[in-house]
Amino acid sequence: MTSTHSGRRLHLATALDQPAVRTAGPYVDAARLAERGALDFVTLGDGFGRPGPEALAVLSRVAPDTARIGLVPTVTTTHTEPFHVQAAVATLDWVSRGRAGWRIDVSTTEGEARLFGRRRAAPADALWREAGEVADAAARLWDSWEDDAEIRDAATGRFVDRDKLHHVDFSGASFSVRGPSIVPRPPQGHPVRVVDATERPARAVAARHADVALVRAAHPGEAAAVRGELRASAAAHGRDPEGLRVLASLEVDLGDGEGAAAPGHGGGGPRPTPHGPRYRGGPVDLAQLVIAWHREGAVDGFHFRPAEPHRDLERLVNGTVALLQHRGLFRTFYPGATLRDHLGLARPANQYAATGGTP
């Protein structure tokens, strides 16, 4: 496995968002291109206030046409049923044979709330506390089946060993769920959970529950500070901070081809914008930025958001990633099969099987 000179493995991911696309083909093509570059995973945004197909459904369609790359849809925890959310994410993990992730998000606007009519919009702090409870409930439901609970014994007619199914009775501030789940334990145990930890209300959820935290930072020092805070908070929650990957989420505009980075970009770093940091320049300069930030220990890798989906993803994979691979700084093939393998994350133990009962 290749890595930068720091000795830490470099992780790369990309967004597949294509706002004008309504058919599956372009998403499949983009995911395949990212897979040719051996990227860890792709993300697809979603939300009740944005037009377009449902991210989880799209990536379920992408799954059979890809073989290794991780698939991470955004699924909001606001105005949704936690039991259904966990079952849908677990199903994606089965469909993709262990490559699913879940980008946890919240829905903050009154317009989104009116779509459901159940409750008014709430402050971000309260919604993220609820998101943390949903993440906790999901983990319990994923563990409600032990790995060998399925018997499938045709002779006796027994499908499942009931002693290896565990009841979940979880009560949060705004919901309650009971298990076991309707879906057997996912291939990864727990699909990979991703949280954008740029805004402070989301950081507690990222530190406690996320496997991958995204940070929109314009300077390596800013990213390093957030990474340090998240890892310290994870340790305070009893987690091993080495089990949390922190990626810089960066919009990239590679329209200038091999031209030098625009002033304020390249070696000077991305330029801040109201929508997050934006890099504008060539693939070679972007590779140098990736190397510099990772070598400094600011981040564990990058999550790219192409400004022009087709053009920039192609230049990213065939330019930036190819250069990193040529220099031995990023892998050229997937040594494992699951998203946890790509990220170097262990498969979680089943909390019920370990204790023999309710944790």
Rank of each mutant, 00 (worst) to 15 (best):
M1D: 08
S3T: 11
S3P: 10
H5V: 14
H5M: 11
H5T: 14
S6C: 08
R9V: 10
R9W: 00
L10F: 04
L10W: 01
A13D: 03
A13E: 03
T14K: 04
T14S: 10
A15C: 03
L16V: 00
D17G: 06
Q18L: 14
Q18Y: 06
A20M: 06
Y27L: 07
D29W: 00
E35G: 11
D46Q: 10
P51S: 08
P51R: 09
P51M: 12
P53H: 06
P64D: 04
A67D: 11
A67N: 15
R68L: 01
G70W: 13
T80I: 11
H84L: 14
T91E: 06
L92C: 11
D93A: 15
W94D: 12
W94L: 13
V95T: 00
S96I: 10
G98P: 14
R99S: 13
R99D: 11
R99C: 03
A100K: 15
V106E: 12
T109Q: 14
T109N: 13
E112G: 14
L115W: 05
F116Q: 09
F116H: 13
F116E: 09
G117T: 09
R120S: 15
R120V: 12
A121Q: 05
A122K: 10
A122P: 09
A126E: 00
L127H: 12
W128T: 02
G132K: 07
E133I: 04
E133K: 09
V134G: 05
A135G: 12
A139M: 10
R140T: 04
E146N: 03
D148W: 11
E150D: 06
D153Q: 15
V160T: 03
V160P: 12
R162P: 04
H166L: 02
D169A: 14
D169C: 14
F170W: 09
S174K: 05
P180A: 11
S181E: 00
R185Q: 14
P187W: 01
Q188G: 05
D196Q: 15
D196W: 13
E199Y: 03
E199M: 07
A202E: 07
R208H: 00
A210G: 04
D211A: 03
A217Q: 04
A223C: 01
R227W: 10
E229V: 12
L230R: 07
R231T: 00
A234L: 13
R239I: 03
V246L: 08
V246N: 06
A248I: 07
S249Q: 12
S249N: 08
L250R: 02
D253V: 05
L254F: 01
D256T: 07
G257N: 05
E258I: 06
E258G: 15
E258N: 11
A262W: 00
G264H: 06
G264S: 05
G264T: 10
G266N: 02
G268C: 10
G268T: 09
H275W: 08
R278C: 04
G281V: 01
E296M: 13
G297Q: 03
A298V: 06
R305M: 02
R305D: 06
P306S: 14
E308C: 12
D312T: 07
D312W: 01
L313M: 10
E314T: 14
R315Y: 04
L316C: 07
G319W: 00
V321H: 04
A322C: 08
L323K: 03
R327T: 05
L329D: 02
F330G: 08
T338G: 07
D341Q: 01
H342A: 15
G344R: 02
L345V: 08
R347V: 02
R347F: 01
Y352H: 04
T358L: 11
P359N: 03
